[in-house]
Simulated scan of single mutants.
Amino acid sequence: MLQTINSKFFNFYRMKHLISKEGFEKFKAEWEHLKYVERPAMINQVQAAAAEGDRSENAAYTYGRMRVREIDRRLRELDRILDGAQIVENAATKDGSIRFGATVKMIDKKTKREKIYSIVGDKEIDPLQGRISMKSPIGEALQGKKAGDTVEVQAPRGKIVYEILEVNY
């Protein structure tokens, strides 16, 4: 039983997940910066603070060790993201339908406010920047639709109706 649980846990973290090429490059650059710039600088800071003597009351030493642990934790997380990434090239579909990698411009039929969303993988979502998951309610509603179509999305504040104005890749 224990072996089965461990293998399920391991497989969960080794599952492939979709990611855009831009998202992959962003995570890779962050990994390289943490590994080759920030972590060595913090190690040097910890070593310098340790050389000063009493470590129990040395704030620079305590902070440095804490920051190195945070960096190591983020590096492990980035390793899992990069190892399990399946890069999807953003290419327009022949029929103009929406799928992973699309940038969609649409208008709320009630408020007349325009929204622009990019459909991305779970690991690279950023709602404030308009980057939503294809598994989100809006992402699911948009999949397969085309410019000119109308979609209904069930949101916490109620049903929202959007008209798709433009689809780009």
Rank of each mutant, 00 (worst) to 15 (best):
E77P: 01
A85T: 04
T103W: 05
I98T: 08
T150C: 08
V68Y: 09
Y117S: 03
R76I: 04
K94N: 13
I81Q: 02
A92T: 05
A92Q: 07
Q129D: 06
V120E: 08
R69H: 10
A141R: 13
K146M: 11
R74K: 12
F100G: 02
F100V: 04
V68G: 09
K94D: 13
K105D: 11
K115Q: 11
Y117G: 00
L82Q: 06
Y117R: 10
A141Q: 10
A147S: 14
K109P: 00
I119E: 00
D122Q: 10
S136Y: 06
S133K: 09
Y117C: 04
V120S: 06
I116C: 02
A92S: 12
I81P: 01
G121E: 08
R74E: 09
R131F: 00
D79Y: 04
K105G: 04
K123L: 07
K135C: 01
D122N: 11
A92N: 02
Q143V: 11
V120T: 10
K94A: 14
I107W: 00
A85M: 01
E124N: 07
Q86N: 13
I116W: 02
D72A: 08
Q154L: 13
D72Y: 08
G148I: 14
Q143E: 10
L128F: 02
A102L: 11
D72V: 11
K105V: 12
Q154N: 13
M106I: 05
V104T: 10
L82V: 08
V88L: 11
R131Q: 06
L78H: 05
E124V: 12
R74Q: 06
Q143I: 14
K109H: 04
P156S: 11
K112H: 11
I119P: 02
F100Q: 08
V104G: 07
I87A: 02
M134H: 10
I71A: 03
Q129M: 14
E70L: 09
D126L: 03
K112R: 15
P156F: 12
V153Y: 07
A147Y: 07
T111A: 05
D83P: 00
P137N: 15
E89F: 07
P156L: 15
M106C: 09
V151E: 01
Q129A: 15
K109C: 07
E114M: 10
R73I: 03
Y117P: 01
R74G: 06
S97Q: 12
T111S: 14
G144L: 03
K105Y: 04
K110W: 01
I81K: 13
M134K: 12
A85H: 01
